[in-house]
């Protein structure tokens, strides 16, 4: 019962490749879920009740169904209707859609938190509806929702480990291979656990710094 980590050293480059793939997936999925989430947040705060209802059904559905079920739905289902995409693309798409549901919540509350006075001031100044939204509402909403968005992003990183179940060899997938190669599953997964925890900790530090920087002119209220 002794932990000997030197055994894993030759496998480090291989696992780094997996980590790189995880990073790629996460960054792409972050962008995807930002776009999906922003669009859905706009729909959920729009004046059109049909649009509002459709968007909240989307968010409700994708937050209450396990990610692995959504993933299998896309991975096994899409070829059925003639769409052949690889595991990487499927993973990014599924993560973006699931992440978008959570992101839309965050941005929506960011939009709703804007004081009506600001919007009225913009209208009085003669800005069109569209200009008010893109120049006033969205920048403020995005800026104040950096921190909650950060926890969504960290969740995204943790969720990306599930992509190993659809044959995508990201960090968890490569660790699985190393574990069965070396017959040292305990050591491999302990290292992996600590690696993920360190990674998400660093990301959370980064987000806190970004949040402080973007909101530096808002005073103490948001710190």
């Amino acid at each position: 019962m002794r932990i000997d980590l030197s055994l894993l050293v030759p496998y480090l480059p291989f696992m780094l490749e997996g980590a790189l793939l995880t990073a790629q997936v996460c960054v792409l999925a972050l962008l995807g879920s930002l776009i999906v989430g922003a669009l859905m947040a706009v729909a959920r705060t729009s004046a059109n009740s049909l649009l509002r209802r459709a968007a909240s059904i989307y968010a409700d559905l994708f937050r209450n169904v396990p990610f692995i079920v959504q993933l299998f739905f896309f991975y096994y289902g899409l070829p059925e209707i003639g769409i052949y995409i690889d595991a990487f693309t499927t993973g990014v798409v599924a993560l973006s859609i699931a992440g978008g549901a959570f992101t839309s919540d965050v941005i929506r509350s960011g939009i709703l938190a804007i004081e009506p006075g600001i919007i009225e001031a913009a209208q009085v100044s003669g800005l069109s509806k569209r200009k008010t939204f893109t120049k006033i509402v969205l920048p403020v909403a995005l800026r104040t929702s950096v921190r909650p968005m950060g926890s969504v992003f960290i969740n995204l990183i943790l969720t990306s480990s599930i992509l190993s179940t659809i044959t995508l060899n990201e960090l968890t997938g490569t660790a699985k291979i190393v574990a069965s190669d070396t017959f040292k599953p305990f050591e491999v997964y302990v290292v992996l656990l600590i690696a993920y925890a360190t990674l998400t900790y660093l990301v959370s530090l980064l987000i806190a710094a970004l949040h402080r920087r973007l909101n530096r002119d808002l005073g103490e209220a948001v710190r």
């Binding site: 019962m1 943790l158 599930i162 660790a175 699985k176 574990a179 599953p185 305990f186 992996l192 900790y201």
Partner: peptide, 19 residues
């Protein structure tokens, strides 16, 4: 701060091998 899947693998594959 770590994926549940990794925790699951650690317990299911790691514990029997190590303990």
């Amino acid at each position: 701060n770590s994926p549940v899947l990794v925790q699951l693998f650690l317990v299911f594959f790691g514990f029997p091998a190590f303990f």
